[in-house]
Structures are given as C-alpha cells and as structure tokens.
Amino acid sequence: MNDIVNIDLLSDKAIMKRIGLFIQQTRIDQNQTQAEVATQAAISRSTLSLIERGDNISLTNLIKILRTLNALYVLKSFEVIEELSPLKLAKGEIKRRKRASKIQEENPNNTDLGW
C-alpha cells in the first residue's frame, strides 16, 4: 500500500527512515546483497545496514550508494533551473544572483515620523 504523506510534516528521523527504505528496496529489487552494494560503494556493510534502518548518514555515503544502485536520478529535483523574465532577457541581464538581500524599508530614517 502506497500512502501519500506530506513530506513537509515528517520529522528528520522519519525522512531518514524513508531514505533508508528506498535504498533497501532498490537494492533488493536489483537482487544485490548489502555486502555487494557496500563493496561497490566503498563503505562498510554495517554502515549500509545503519543507513537502511534510517540512521544518520553522510551526504558522501548517500551519493556513493545511489551511484552504485544507479539511482542518482532521485537527486534530479536539486537541479537549479533559472527562469528569466522576458524583460531581463531583453535587457541582456542573464547573470545569476549570488547573494540574498533584504527588502529596503521605504523610510530607513527611523527618527522621521512623517510630521
């Protein structure tokens, strides 16, 4: 049964368990043992076992495992796709923003009460 759950409502631990379950099911679907995947990913079998149970994982180990399972496609949603407005495109302003900035207040001088 596939339950549709709003992932935003899950705790960090619950999300790690889902990642672990995904890795475990993908590995089993490919008929690979933990030892085989761990060897190919250059991690220990016990590390893979911990990950499959939802324990804390390093990003590097996650990438190694996903690469070994040919499942890097799950990271596709991290791809940054910039949408250019027609106005910026016409002006030739196609530079990527490098910093975030706060919105300037209309009246930055707090001593002026507008009287």
Rank of each mutant, 00 (worst) to 15 (best):
A100G: 15
T47M: 02
E52S: 03
L59G: 09
A41M: 00
T39R: 00
L50A: 08
E79N: 09
R96H: 11
K76S: 09
A35K: 09
N31T: 08
E36H: 02
E52I: 01
K76H: 13
I65S: 01
R97T: 06
Q34E: 10
I51Q: 02
S46W: 04
I43F: 02
R97F: 05
I43M: 06
L75G: 01
N61T: 05
K98C: 05
Q30P: 00
A90Q: 11
S58C: 04
T68R: 05
R53N: 13
L50M: 11
E106Y: 12
I51F: 08
S85R: 10
P86E: 12
L66Y: 10
E82R: 12
Q32S: 04
I65G: 04
L89C: 00
E83F: 15
L50P: 01
K76N: 14
T33L: 00
F78Q: 08
L50S: 12
L50R: 13
A90V: 11
A90G: 02
R99L: 11
S49W: 08
I81T: 14
R97N: 07
I63V: 15
L72H: 01
L59Q: 08
I94R: 05
K76P: 04
K91F: 14
A71V: 05
E79K: 10
K95Y: 00
K64I: 03
L48W: 08
K88Q: 14
Q40H: 07
E36I: 09
S77T: 13
R99E: 13
L59Y: 15
I65N: 08
L69Y: 08
R45P: 01
T33D: 07
L59V: 15
S77A: 09
I103R: 15
R96N: 04
E82L: 13
R45I: 02
S85Q: 12
A35M: 08
V37S: 06
I57Q: 10
L48K: 05
P86H: 08
K98A: 07
S44G: 12
E105R: 15
A71N: 00
N70H: 15
A35G: 00
K102M: 10
R96S: 06
K91D: 10
I81K: 14
K91Y: 12
K95M: 01
E93V: 07
E93T: 04
R99Y: 15
T33H: 03
V74M: 00
Q104S: 14
V74P: 03
D55C: 06
L89Q: 13
N31G: 01
L87G: 01
K95T: 07
I51R: 03
L89P: 00
K88P: 07
R67F: 15
Y73S: 11
F78S: 06
S101M: 10
A90R: 09
L48C: 03
Q30Y: 08
E105F: 14
S49H: 09
K64Y: 14
N70V: 05
